[in-house]
């Protein structure tokens, strides 16, 4: 165990930013250390008020990059009104990035990707859960953590095919009759989303 830990320390010492790294992976997650320089500067300028908290102190610290690739991918999938998945260990997720579908497995290279309307699927063993996401961002970290932030997402079995067809027809008509650039852009977005929904349902 200690040999492993030593190896990890060595592998990490090359990394410049080890500010919020934990000394041993077997340790309990230490309270995230707030920005020391900020607290010091604060105490110098405003000695009579406690420094405010910063978001980092409310977060459970993330583990450092392990030396070997773990077997599972840890996924956080958040929406403004819910945390759909939080630190859930899965085999793979497929993300609708704006450059095309992107499959993320453990050990994926660190990536920042913009999302487009499309289907996101979460693979866990034989089980596959599919969501339709509207837009957002996905971050894949080198420690096999993936964060997916979407503005809106619904499980695909909750979509109504009839309404999708109707919406698609409506927006296609709007796109044809649009006169200003703004109207055209809005209609184009509507058509894009509905055709993505349509292909998600049929595909």
């Amino acid at each position: 165990m200690f040999r492993q830990a030593a190896a990890r320390i060595l592998s990490r010492s090359s990394r410049a930013a080890a500010a919020r790294a934990r000394p041993f992976s077997t340790d309990l997650p230490a309270a995230a250390s707030p920005d020391e320089t900020f607290v010091e500067a604060w105490k110098k300028v405003i000695p009579n008020i406690e420094p405010p908290k910063t978001p980092l102190s409310f977060m459970t610290p993330r583990p450092a990059t392990p030396s070997s690739i773990p077997s599972k991918l840890t996924v956080n999938f958040v929406l403004p009104y819910a945390s759909e998945l939080s630190t859930k260990e899965v085999d793979m997720v497929i993300i609708p990035a704006s450059t095309g579908q992107m499959g993320v497995l453990p050990g994926h290279v660190a990536t920042i990707a913009e999302l487009k309307p499309g289907v996101m699927s979460v693979h866990e063993g034989d089980k596959v859960v599919k969501y339709f996401v509207s837009s957002g961002f996905a971050f894949v970290h080198s420690n096999s953590y993936a964060d997916i932030i979407a503005v809106e997402a619904v499980p695909i079995d909750q979509l109504d095919p009839a309404l999708v067809q109707k919406g698609l027809a409506d927006f296609t008509q709007k796109l044809n009759s649009a006169s200003t650039d703004l109207e055209k852009a809005e209609a184009q977005i509507g058509v894009d989303v509905h055709s993505a929904l349509n292909s998600a349902l049929t595909g």
């Binding site: 978001p55 980092l56 977060m59 993330r62 956080n76 958040v78 929406l79 403004p80 819910a82 945390s83 939080s86 961002f137 971050f139 970290h141 953590y145 964060d147 997916i148 932030i149």
Partner: peptide
């Protein structure tokens, strides 16, 4: 959950 990925 919403802000945590950004801070990470």
């Amino acid at each position: 959950g919403l802000w945590q990925p950004f801070t990470a």
